[in-house]
């Protein structure tokens, strides 16, 4: 067999592998009876998930014969998807099929997926609360961070007074402010918003100001000989040149805002995805905890991807400062 034919066969294997992995998991799920020590789920939700993904991947597999770009993606992702499903398969075997892992802490996949469906209204409500809190906190932290970063970067006086404050206060994890914040703010919502804003503000300020001070001096000099005044030097040269750094700061800020969000919601929030996870943990409802974590993971990675999409648009001129 020549190498070309050989690589074609491996490509085909990569394409089929996700479906094979799903079918294999489905067979084990249907054939092995559930362990008696696991509480019964009200339906076999994991089986439904497997059926749905089998249909989806089969459709993608068929589509890949007509669309070259779909085919390439499928070949590239083939091993990973198959591996991910194999992981779920193993988890399923270790939990509900054999009860090898502690039953209380490792509920069956049927029950975890079940929570996502039966408890969806509460989860959605919590998610909306969290997103509201996150967006208000993030936006105010980012805006103030960019403003203070620019001010520190351009003004020696501001830098003299503000930089030490930033250096001392910035590295304090924003959740450490909780005792103080609880006293200073009238409501849990405003307190949590403040904490998230602080978490975003610090990295944004640091990266923006360091980005501006790293701008080549010749850019400013050239702009001056072209007739740029002080304002034009700041907003037409300094800010766009520091943009890659700014996004780095915003990215770090986004990550710490997620951490802060989940923690901040533990201080007397009424709803929120962090509150949900915490509350369910106290009720020892671990299926709900895992469901909450899945929602957090999916939503946060969507938000990060969005941020990077914006960055790619804005930084068209510069390719990949950090890869995602």
């Amino acid at each position: 067999m020549n190498t070309n034919a050989k690589s074609k066969t491996t490509d085909l294997i990569k394409e089929v592998l996700p479906c094979v992995s799903i079918v294999f998991t489905l067979l084990l799920q249907l054939m092995i009876p559930d362990s008696a020590s696991h509480p019964q789920a009200d339906a076999h939700y994991f089986t439904y998930v497997l059926w749905i993904s089998l249909v989806v991947w089969a459709l993608i597999f068929i589509l890949s014969f007509f669309r070259q770009n779909v085919r390439k993606k499928l070949i590239y992702k083939g091993y990973f998807i198959a591996g991910a499903i194999l992981f779920l398969n193993i988890v399923n075997l270790l939990t509900v099929k054999s009860a090898l892992l502690p039953v209380l802490y490792f509920p069956s996949l049927d029950r975890i997926f079940g929570v996502l469906i039966t408890d969806r209204q509460l989860i959605l409500k919590c998610l909306l609360y969290s997103i509201r809190l996150l967006s208000v906190g993030f936006l105010s932290g980012a805006v103030i961070g960019i403003i203070s970063g620019i001010a520190i970067g351009f003004s020696k006086t501001v830098s003299y007074w503000l930089m030490p404050v930033v250096r001392v206060l910035g590295p304090i994890p924003s959740t450490a402010w909780i005792p103080l914040v609880l006293v200073c703010f009238p409501s849990a919502v405003s307190a949590s918003t403040f904490l998230i804003a602080v978490a975003v503000w610090f990295p944004t300020t640091i990266m923006t100001s360091s980005g501006i001070s790293n701008v080549q001096n010749s850019y400013f000099e050239v702009s001056r000989t072209l007739g740029a005044g002080k304002l034009a030097q700041i907003f037409e040269v300094g800010v766009p040149a520091a943009m890659p750094h700014m996004f780095l700061g915003l990215f770090n800020g986004t990550c710490s805002s997620f951490i802060t969000l989940v923690t901040a919601e533990m201080i007397g929030a009424k709803y929120g995805i962090g509150w949900y996870v915490n509350w369910q943990k106290e009720l020892l409802a671990y299926a709900n905890v895992y469901a909450g974590l899945i929602v957090i993971a999916v939503v946060f990675s969507i938000l990060i991807t969005l941020l990077f999409k914006v960055r790619d648009k804005v930084l068209l001129w510069q390719k990949g400062v950090i890869k995602w």
């Binding site: 010749s218 850019y219 000099e221 050239v222 072209l226 007739g227 740029a228 037409e236």
Partner: peptide, 30 residues
């Protein structure tokens, strides 16, 4: 400094975030 005395450096120091047209238009814009 003034736009009456233009300066060209050894390194072109074009603004990398602007395309050629916007680079050339920079002085007029500011």
């Amino acid at each position: 400094t003034s736009y009456e005395r233009g300066l060209v450096f050894q390194n072109p120091t074009l603004f990398p975030w602007l395309n050629i047209q916007d680079n050339v238009a920079f002085g007029l814009k500011v």
